[in-house]
C-alpha cells in the first residue's frame, strides 16, 4: 500500500519552467548534465563567485563548464556577477519591483510553483525587513507534485457527506503540505462516492498551491479558490465573508490569532483542515499553543505523518476522543 503512488511524469514540464529562468551560460551547462541527474534533480545552487552546484540523487555535485559533474573544485564552473544579475532579472520576469513582498520573505515562486530561495544584504526599516539588496545566492528548489498522495487517507476524513475537522501533525519534510494539497484536490474535484464541494485555501507561504501571479500552479481542484500569500487569520475571515467555502484549508497553524479565526470558521459551519509541526499527538499536547487548541476538541481527526515506511507514511489517525486510533498499522 502506498500513500505516494506513481509520480506524474512532469519532468519536461518542470525542466521548461526552470530552464527558462536560467542565464544562458548556466542553462547550457545544466542542460548538458547527464540525463538521470537532471531527472532526479532537486536543487540548483547558484552562488556568486562560487562553484555552480546541483543536488540530485541524495548528494550535491560541482558542475563543470562542459556539463559534466566533478568532485574537484578547481574544474567547476564559477558563477559570475553577470550570471546572478541576469538570473535575478529572469526569475522576477524583469520585474523585481513586483516582488517586494516575496523578496522580504526570502523567496520567489516560479511558474510551475517551484521556489527560488534568495539571500543578500537585508535592508531594515524600524526593525522590520524592508527589502534585500545585493542578492547573490540562489537556491532553485524543484518541487514535484504527488497527485494521489491523499487517496488513502480520504475515507478516514469523511462520514457520509460530512468532512471532519482535521489536523495533520508531522515533523518537517514529511510530506505535510503535499498531503494537504492532495486532500484539497480530492475534496474539490470529488471522487467516487463523494461529490466535490467548494474549497478555500489560505496559502500564507505559497506552498500549498504554488501560485504564480496569483494562479495556482498545482492541482488543487476545480472548486478551489486560493488566497495567495495571505496571513492565515485575516485570510480565513476573508474567505468566510467573500467566497462561502464549505471547507477551508490552511498550512501550519501556530499563532494565537489563528485559533480565533478557526473558531470563527467553525461558527460559520465551515470545515477546517490544517497542519502543525509536531512529531506526535503527545508532542503536540506539550506545546502551549497547540495544546490549547487541542483541548477545545475542535479537531475530529488527527493524522500523524512520519517516515517509518518512507517519507509520507501515514502513521496514525486519531478519532475525536484522541485516544482511539483508526489505523491498526502505518500505511504508505
Amino acid at each position: 500500500m502506498t500513500l505516494l503512488p506513481q509520480m506524474k511524469d512532469s519532468t519536461l514540464e518542470w525542466q521548461e519552467a526552470i530552464f527558462e529562468t536560467l542565464p544562458d551560460t548556466i542553462r547550457k551547462i545544466i542542460r548538458s548534465l547527464p540525463v538521470p541527474l537532471i531527472q532526479d534533480m532537486e536543487e540548483i545552487n547558484i552562488r556568486e563567485n562560487r562553484p555552480l552546484m546541483v543536488y540530485s540523487r541524495g548528494r550535491d555535485y560541482f558542475v563543470c563548464p562542459d556539463g559534466s559533474v566533478c568532485t574537484h573544485l578547481e574544474r567547476a564552473y564559477i558563477v559570475t556577477a553577470d550570471d546572478t544579475r541576469e538570473l535575478m532579472q529572469l526569475i522576477s520576469d524583469y520585474s523585481i519591483y513586483a516582488f517586494d513582498e516575496e523578496i522580504q520573505n526570502g523567496y520567489i515562486t516560479l511558474r510551475g510553483g517551484h521556489r527560488v530561495g534568495i539571500t543578500g544584504k537585508t535592508v531594515l526599516d524600524k526593525g522590520q525587513i524592508r527589502t534585500m539588496k545585493h542578492i547573490n545566492s540562489f537556491n532553485i528548489r524543484i518541487s514535484k507534485e504527488v497527485i494521489g498522495a491523499a487517496n488513502k487517507i480520504m475515507p478516514f476524513l469523511l462520514s457520509g457527506k460530512k468532512v471532519y475537522h482535521t489536523l495533520v501533525l508531522s515533523p518537517p519534510q514529511m510530506g505535510k503540505t503535499t498531503l494537504l494539497r492532495d486532500i484539497a484536490r480530492n475534496l474539490s474535484d470529488g471522487f467516487p462516492g463523494y461529490r466535490g464541494v467548494k474549497v478555500g485555501i489560505v496559502d500564507e507561504r505559497s506552498e500549498i498551491a504554488g501560485c504564480w501571479y496569483g494562479l495556482p500552479q498545482r492541482q488543487v481542484g476545480i472548486r478551489t479558490d486560493v488566497l495567495d500569500s495571505c496571513p492565515k487569520a485575516a485570510g480565513i475571515m476573508m474567505m468566510i465573508r467573500s467566497m462561502s467555502p464549505r471547507i477551508i484549508l490552511t498550512d501550519e497553524i501556530g499563532r494565537p490569532e489563528d485559533a480565533a479565526a478557526i473558531e470563527e470558521a467553525l461558527n460559520a459551519g465551515i470545515t477546517i483542515i490544517t497542519s502543525a509541526h509536531a512529531a506526535d499527538l503527545q508532542d503536540a499536547l506539550a506545546r502551549p499553543f497547540l495544546s490549547r487548541i487541542l483541548e477545545r476538541r475542535i479537531f475530529e481527526r488527527i493524522a500523524v505523518l512520519g517516515d517509518s515506511l518512507g517519507v509520507g507514511t501515514l502513521e496514525k489517525i486519531y478519532a475525536e476522543d484522541y485516544s482511539s486510533q483508526l489505523l491498526n498499522r502505518p500505511i504508505r
Binding site: 535575478m88 532579472q89 522576477s92 524583469y94 523585481i96 519591483y97 513586483a98 517586494d100 523578496i103 527589502t131
Partner: peptide, 9 residues
C-alpha cells in the same frame, strides 16, 4: 528599468 524595488523604480 525593472531592476530595483517599487520605490526605487
Amino acid at each position: 528599468l525593472g531592476s530595483s524595488d517599487r520605490e526605487g523604480q
